[in-house]
Amino acid sequence: MYGLSDELKEKVIRLNSNLCNKYNKLLKMDSGELKNYVDENIGEIVQIEKMDKSEIEKYLKNGGIIGVDGSKNRIGGAYPHYLEIYQGLAKSSIYDDTPIYKADFYTPLYTEEESELIERLDGNEEAIKNYKLSGIEVDVALEGVKKYNPYAIMMDGSLIRYDIECFEKWIELRRECENRGIILIGVIKDIKTSIVGEKLAKDKILDTAENLYDRELLYGLLKYGEMVKIKDEVAKKPKEGFTSIFMRSSNAPSVIGMDILDTQREYIEEMAKLVFTLTPKNSRGVPLWLDIVDSEVKISDKMMHSILETYLDREILEKLFISERDKRTL
């Protein structure tokens, strides 16, 4: 067995004890009562069904759907000797042989062409990197809108991320979709909100210090195909212009989230039904089309090294971006 210090064992045991204490009330809550609470206080719980063939054909006749995702990878060591590469992909369900790719990069060693962006974001390095990744995702989505005029666009992740990280580009995409009548949604695989927990704390059902998240509170609570239509008054996204749902889209006990523009809220059940239809029952709950886009946009370590070894001078690559630790594996 690998060496394990007694101190580490004790710390893990203490962590387990603390987590058990923290989640004690949650674990003891009756699931039926919690579900009724969610239905009455968070949003109506609705059972949805998968689309039939005729409903799916409607999408084929009206431009199909576009899946959008982005990927990033990094090489190098500590600041400033690193390089991040970003790639965005928009893929049409009808014109899948002509995907739209866009790419960008960031390194603190070369910022001469980005002085305007750096100034606008007050030199905040994390904000700059977030802008680059979210920005190219919006760019490929916008090009997809203009090139294919789809029925709907399915972004990977919450739409609020684009509103925060690349506002000007996001507003252009939003307006273009609204003007063309293209439905725009975001599918959230790993929800990080705490809507239910905060409401439970506010109503004194759980302690305010517990800070429980929706991920654990809704785990296993919904039946396959059930969704929660989150009320605007308990959600935090309406002021940014979004309406949201939670949904159990597969046999996996976890839930996913979905955002839609508030101006398109009338389509929320239709889009939930579309996501449900595109998600394999025995999967982790992600629509198959987004999984395909994710696999095709991903920048693997092998791809990263291949690109840089091909297009960067070897001396530049080794001197600036290969850390001493990485050299052990070269």
Score class of each variant (00 low, 15 high):
L184T: 03
D30S: 14
L83W: 14
R215T: 01
G285A: 08
V187S: 01
E226P: 01
I66W: 02
D96N: 14
K319I: 09
M303F: 13
I307G: 09
P99C: 08
K223Q: 12
Y110M: 14
M154A: 03
D301L: 07
L19V: 11
Y86R: 09
I195T: 13
Y148C: 04
E84G: 00
G32C: 09
T193V: 00
S244R: 12
T111W: 07
S306T: 15
L4Y: 08
M258R: 03
F167A: 12
F276M: 03
P150L: 04
I188N: 03
H81G: 09
K61G: 09
I292G: 06
K223Y: 13
I260P: 11
D6F: 00
D6E: 14
D96K: 15
K302Y: 11
E266T: 00
E266D: 13
S194E: 10
W170P: 07
G225H: 07
I118W: 06
W289P: 00
C166R: 05
T111F: 06
Y95V: 10
E49T: 03
Y2W: 06
M258T: 07
N73M: 12
D6M: 03
A272R: 02
I182S: 04
E165G: 00
A272C: 07
Y95R: 10
S115T: 13
K9G: 03
S283C: 10
R174D: 00
